[in-house]
Write a protein that binds this DNA or RNA. Structure first.
Lengths: 230, 230
DNA sequence: CCAAAAGTGTTCATCGTACACCCATGT
DNA sequence: ACATGGGTGTACGATGAACACTTTTGG
């Protein structure tokens, strides 16, 4: 009953590019770890793991992020599959890569520390093992494209955030400054942000109003052919 | 020296969504075949095959398209990896899907016939095996996005083509009519098409001038931060 | 009172879109 | 001469980009 006998089976892994942001950061960070096993032990790498016989690729990716951060229900998207036969000197492994977006404040620091994981700003990205640097570049490219046309930026911010925080996030993603008047107008005229009565007072004396992303409204607008565009 | 022993190996396949167009078509077509082996023998399916131990994913995809069409140097792009453990009732198989674009006139009809392959217009897409219908939808979505921002439409046309042919292709991709004055202006003002002295006279008495896509010019413009946009 | 960040409007150029008629020619 | 598809220009509204000053308040 095995229809496909006598074909070669291959090891399949999942590698996760985990981007993180803190609401007062000015730069995006990637979660990297020091590899604890051979080959390439001690070098910088992405978090990964082998796909198990009974789980889907998405499930494997979720499991891996959960193991490292303690977070469930994280935004996650498949990126690309890397299959050069020599990409891993330890053997032929096909790697399916995933991008995740995380609010740095919400993850489990102990768990990450236990795995030897660190948040590294993109500007200080070290040399990673194998083709992991390619994975990060591809992930960043995809994030930049996605963030323009889908409201995924909010995955990197807490539920309540201020417009200046949102702007700093987008500036971090695109590594380019935006005009604050144009930016504010653009995000507000979409009508997807609900203004709260509360102010954030840490970063300025005047204080900035908090806003909340209204996901329900977004779904409604989508029905009418609405296009998110930033 | 096998660092990754005692992890489960999995069958990995490549499946190709092959889109084709004929310069006087008004609809996009997909190359489908009647499956010749179990499971699901006799049902419609995409062309696929297993990844061999010594080849990369891209190489496997090229090999498969070459086998079916006799064409080498075909435009090809990795699409997505499908890994639900139950996606194939014949066993656990992870499939990496690829999209290819082909000029229908140039492929080897004999070879395709020998494999039981047929060009099926998108409007008549049948029920396919497993998750192959999902693959086709995803491929179409990707093609639509790509064709707007990269000059990949030309992969579906012969070297010489007329503006009305190009317009029909884009109308086929987006299944929507375009205004011919606006379309012509847009493609010509990009400066990527070289007008030939020759006319195509089959589809009209007046005849339409042939044009050629200037890839060199495109590369040059890219350096200067040019963005293709249709 | 002053430093530091939040908040606010207008102008201009550009681009996308809508729209209708003449041209060339094979039959 | 006529039917068929090829080829052309303009006007208007919408959108994106550039730009500088006032407000609030903790120290």
């Amino acid at each position: 009953m095995d229809f496909y006998a006598n074909h070669t089976r291959i090891l399949v892994a999942v590698d996760s590019i985990i981007f993180g942001f803190n609401e007062n950061d000015t730069e995006l960070k990637v979660l990297l770890l020091k590899r604890k096993f051979e080959p390439a032990k001690g070098e910088w790498s992405l978090m990964g793991g082998f796909v198990r016989p009974e789980e889907s690729l998405d499930e494997a990716a979720q499991r891996i992020v959960l193991q490292l951060t303690g977070l469930d229900n994280v935004y996650m998207e498949q990126l690309y599959s890397f299959g050069d036969p020599d990409r891993d000197p330890g053997g032929r492994i096909i790697s399916v890569s995933y991008v995740s977006l995380i609010k740095i404040n919400e993850y489990d620091r102990e768990l990450a520390k236990h795995h030897g994981a660190f948040w590294i700003p993109l500007s200080e990205l070290p040399k990673l093992i194998f083709d992991h640097n390619d994975m990060v570049s591809k992930a960043l490219r995809k994030l930049r494209i996605r963030a323009r046309t889908q409201p995924i930026g909010f995955e990197l911010l807490p539920e309540k955030f201020t417009i200046p925080q949102l702007q700093r996030l987008y500036e971090a993603i695109y590594q380019a400054p935006f005009d604050k008047r144009n930016f504010r107008r653009k995000v507000l005229t979409m009508g997807l942000l609900d203004k709260l009565d509360e102010k954030e007072k840490e970063t300025s004396k005047k204080g900035a109003y908090y806003y909340k992303f209204n996901a329900t409204k977004y779904e409604e607008l989508l029905q009418g052919g609405f296009n998110f565009e930033l």
